[in-house]
C-alpha cells in the first residue's frame, strides 16, 4: 500500500449514474487486477474504496456508480483536482488459476475490475470470455472497450432491453457453446451466490463490504470462510470459491 496525491485527468459520465475517472500518479503499489484504491474526499470522514478498472505505470482508471454521499461528491470533481488516495489495496485476482478460457462475469458496478483482468489474461495468451450484466440498456458501459480487446462478450440486461434477457446466470445457462475453464466474478452478492451455484468449475469472486480503513487495521469488514476469519479489504476482496461459506 502507498499513500499519494493523484491528479484527476478526466471525470465523465459513461452511463446512467455511472462515471469514469482517470487519475495520474504513482501506481507502483498496484500488482494485480482486482485490487482497489481508497479515496479521501472533502466532507467525508471515511475514505471511499473503489476498484481499479485499468492502470498503467502512471494512470489509474476507476468506474463508479453514484450511490451515496461520497460517490456523489466524487462525480462533481473537476479535471485537475488533486485527491489523497491509498493505492494498491487488497489481494486481487490470481490469473495463474484461469486455465485457457476463463469466464469473466461482471454485474453492474462489479464490471470495472474485469477490464484490467481481461487485459492481463490476454497478455498471458489466454482466451477469456466476458459476461456483462446490467439492469437496463441505459446503464451499459465499456461494452465496446471489452469488444475492442478482441474477446468474446456476452451482454445481458435484467429487463431484456439489450442482449440476453435476464441475469448473468441466465446467460451462462442458456448459452450452449460456453466452454470455460474457470471463472472470475464481481457484482452484487446475490449475483455471486447465484454464480456459485450455477458454475461447476473453480472460480474466484470479489466481495464488497463497508470498510473502515481498507488496509486490514480495523477489522470492520471481516467475514467467515472455511479457512477462518478474513478481512475483505486485506485478505480479500477476492476469495476462492472453495473457501466461501454459502
Amino acid at each position: 500500500m502507498t499513500q499519494g496525491i493523484y491528479k484527476i485527468l478526466s471525470n465523465r459520465c459513461v452511463a446512467k449514474n455511472t462515471f469514469e475517472m482517470v487519475l495520474e500518479g504513482d501506481t507502483s503499489s498496484l500488482r494485480l487486477p482486482g485490487q482497489f484504491i481508497n479515496i479521501l474526499l472533502d466532507g467525508c470522514f471515511l475514505r471511499r474504496p473503489i476498484s481499479v478498472c485499468d492502470y498503467d505505470s502512471f494512470h489509474i482508471t476507476i468506474i463508479y456508480k453514484v450511490v451515496g454521499k461520497g460517490t456523489a461528491l466524487l462525480s462533481k470533481l473537476n479535471e485537475g483536482t488533486s485527491l489523497d488516495i491509498l493505492c494498491g489495496l487488497g489481494n486481487g485476482f490470481d490469473t495463474a488459476k484461469s486455465g485457457f478460457s476463463p469466464l469473466l462475469i461482471g454485474g453492474g458496478a462489479g464490471i470495472p475490475p474485469m477490464y484490467a483482468l481481461a487485459k492481463q489474461l490476454l497478455i498471458e495468451k489466454k482466451k477469456p470470455i466476458a459476461i456483462l450484466g446490467f439492469n437496463t440498456a441505459d446503464e451499459i458501459f465499456y461494452r465496446e472497450k471489452f469488444e475492442a480487446l478482441g474477446m468474446h462478450v456476452l451482454l445481458c440486461t435484467a429487463d431484456g432491453s439489450i442482449g440476453i434477457k435476464g441475469f448473468v446466470t441466465d446467460a451462462i445457462r442458456n448459452t450452449s457453446y460456453l466452454d470455460y475453464s474457470f471463472y472470475y466474478a464481481c457484482g452484487p452478492e446475490a449475483m455471486l451466490k447465484a454464480i456459485y451455484h450455477t458454475c461447476s468449475t473453480d472460480g474466484q469472486m470479489s466481495f464488497e463490504e463497508r470498510m473502515g480503513c481498507g488496509f486490514g487495521a480495523c477489522m470492520g469488514c471481516s467475514c467467515k470462510t472455511k479457512y477462518g476469519n478474513k478481512r475483505i479489504c486485506k485478505d480479500g476482496p477476492v476469495l476462492n470459491k472453495e473457501e466461501i461459506l454459502w
Binding site: C44, F45, L46, K69, E209, R210, M211, G212, C218, M219, G220, C221, S222, C223, K224, N229
Partner: peptide, 23 residues
Amino acid sequence: RFGNLTPRIAETPCGMLNSVGLQ
C-alpha cells in the same frame, strides 16, 4: 471471537461508528 455481523462500520459527521465487537 468473530465479533458482530457486518455491516459493522458506518460513517457519521466528523467520525464513524463501529460495531466490530472485539474480533
